[in-house]
């Protein structure tokens, strides 16, 4: 009886979700009110910023200061986790009953690691032409390092240089914003010349910002995973 009642409630809830989602014009180009900002982004974002992906033109240029805030939030979360995991005592590894990975898994991880890093680089460099961007590419690179932790333990990851990369990426992001303020009119303004549309160099500063965000997110998430794994219980 309880199962029946819960099933009926589930059906009602999902019907409500579907009909609520039906009201919004997802994926269609017909937004009714012409003076809404959405119409402006859809019509003029391509000419103004040179990004074929409208989401990228909104995230990086129109709302770039907000993106800086999001990156800062992730940085603060990484700092908090590092403070929690930090232990003054000398770390001694407790590898009594630890099974090592099988040969197939080790070989597969070692073979797939550069391919996944290459794919993450593709995702964040082409962020203004295809779906994806800095955050997604950074997460893919962090997943590659996680795979290295899972598969072959004998490879050590240099955490010192990873922290350096993270700090450099943050400095580059803020520096590009300040350069836009110097040569242009506003923070994060596009001051580089733009090439042809739909080509790789059509974005101006957008690929550089996305490279910075990708390296920063990837280094932070890999640091979080490394801190979790190497912490004694």
């Amino acid at each position: 009886m309880r199962i029946l009642i819960s099933c009926v409630l589930l059906v009602i809830l999902s019907l409500g979700l579907v009909f609520a989602l039906e009201q919004a014009p997802f994926g269609s180009n017909q937004i009714d009110n012409a003076d809404k900002p959405g119409r402006f982004y859809l019509n003029q974002g391509m000419e103004k910023t040179g990004a074929a992906n409208v989401v990228t033109s909104v995230v990086v240029t129109y709302r770039g200061f907000d993106t800086l805030g999001e990156v800062t939030i992730l940085f603060i979360a990484a700092i908090g986790l590092g403070a929690v995991f930090h232990s003054r005592k000398k770390v001694k590894r407790y590898e009594k009953e630890k099974q090592s990975a099988s040969l197939i898994l080790q070989t597969g991880c070692r073979f797939l690691f550069p391919l996944i890093v290459l794919f993450g680089t593709y995702v964040f460099i082409h962020g203004h032409l295809s779906p994806g961007g800095g955050f997604q590419g950074g997460v893919i690179i962090a997943s590659a390092f996680l795979l290295l932790f899972l598969g072959c333990e004998e490879k050590k990851i240099p955490m010192k240089s990873m922290n350096t990369v993270e700090s450099l990426a943050g400095i580059i992001f803020v520096g590009i914003g300040l350069a836009g303020l110097y040569w242009g009119e506003s923070f994060l303004e596009n001051f580089l010349p733009r090439g042809m549309d739909y080509m790789l160099l059509s974005g101006g500063v957008i690929p550089i910002i996305y490279i910075a965000i990708g390296f920063k997110v990837g280094a932070e998430l890999a640091g979080i995973v490394a801190g979790l794994i190497e912490r004694n219980p």
């Binding site: 898994l105 995702v123 994806g132 997604q136 997943s143 996680l146 795979l147 899972l150």
Partner: peptide, 16 residues
């Protein structure tokens, strides 16, 4: 591209 992300990344959860 989204399907490519699935094909590349989905096995990491299973391996974990």
């Amino acid at each position: 591209d989204v399907a490519l992300v699935y094909a590349v990344l989905m096995f990491i959860g299973s391996v974990a």
